[in-house]
Design a protein around this nucleic acid. Structure first.
Length: 281
DNA sequence: AACTCGTGCAACCGCAATGAA
DNA sequence: CTTCATTGCGGTTGCACGAGT
């Protein structure tokens, strides 16, 4: 027996909202209240004279029609907030991250991160980490990393790339080695090991933008919601470039790199000390 | 001008959480 | 305590649009 559908999909309109629909929804919610108590989203479409799914109405209102919504034009301050919080919480807390920025929705923040900020962080998708130029420090700024925290040195030899602690954590998480602040001792083969990371999902853009140089295996992963850990970093051995597959810190560690703790959430913990990876390991 | 490609964003899907019955 | 409707949310997809060729 399948799950009961939230609406009659045959008889609801889908796709972009027309100005008329927007006006009808807005008018209904403004006169009947939109705080969630006065409105029952499932039955709202009928009451408001809309041929839409209730979930669709809710989404439209929350992400677009609400009067206090801000669109686009993220400030550098907001960039910093997002990066900082993402660093601490990962991609599973978009709503929490958005709550730090009035007028921003989780969808907005998520889209902004996935399409712009992530690339901005890596200096435009790809950063030549073979270079000794201090570009990493610039990247660190996007995370709001304190000067003292910026990478000084690492376990890498001088011929190996230096990675900021934040990125280092990403490496650690994705490679399953450690999620703490210890220095990384991976060699490029390990970094570039799809089996090791085991992720099958390359992120939303992967379906058309990335010329995949590896065939990430589907098998070997028992993670049902692998999409929540979309991403990977690997070292392209031909170019020596650090490539981004859309990394995600899908680690709900209680303690982040900078000494702040986020609740006492404890769940299944894998050998790495990183929750969420328990199944995989 | 026509076509391809990359990008941004709105919207959808499906699962988990919540709470009322 | 269980069931089930509803809500909330993260990940993914569809598509319009602009830039490049």
């Amino acid at each position: 027996m399948g799950r009961t559908p939230c609406c009659d999909k045959e008889n609801v309109k889908r796709g972009p909202w027309s100005p008329e629909e927007d006006a009808a929804l807005k008018s209904y919610l403004q006169s009947h209240g939109s705080d969630g108590t006065a409105s029952n989203w499932i039955h709202l479409p009928k009451k408001a004279g809309l041929r839409r799914c209730g979930k669709s109405c809710r989404l439209r209102w929350l992400n677009y029609l609400r009067p206090d919504i801000k669109h686009g034009g993220f400030t550098e301050e907001e960039d910093s907030i997002i990066c900082n919080l993402y660093n601490q919480m990962g991609s599973r807390q978009w709503s929490v991250i958005a709550s730090y920025m009035p007028g921003r929705t989780d969808n907005d923040v998520k889209n902004y991160w996935n399409t712009k900020l992530k690339k901005k962080l890596l200096g435009g998708k790809i950063k030549n980490i073979s270079s000794k130029e201090p570009t990493i420090a610039n990247n660190a700024n996007f995370f709001g990393i304190p000067e003292a925290e910026k990478p000084q040195d690492s376990a890498f030899s001088t011929s190996q790339p230096q990675v900021p602690s934040t990125l280092q954590m990403l490496y650690d998480v994705n490679s399953g080695l450690s999620a703490d602040n210890q220095t990384m001792s991976l060699n490029p083969d390990q970094l570039y090991n799809p089996k090791l990371s085991g992720f099958s999902d390359l992120g939303a853009r992967s379906r058309r933008n990335y010329s995949t140089t590896v065939s990430l295996s589907q098998e070997g992963s028992s993670i049902s919601d692998s999409s929540s850990m979309a991403g990977n970093l690997y070292l392209d051995q031909d170019s020596g470039f650090l490539m981004d597959y859309g990394f995600g810190v899908a680690c709900d560690n209680n303690v982040n790199h900078y000494g702040m703790s986020f609740g006492d959430k404890t769940s299944e913990v894998g050998p790495t000390g990183c929750t969420d990876f328990g199944d995989f390991f």
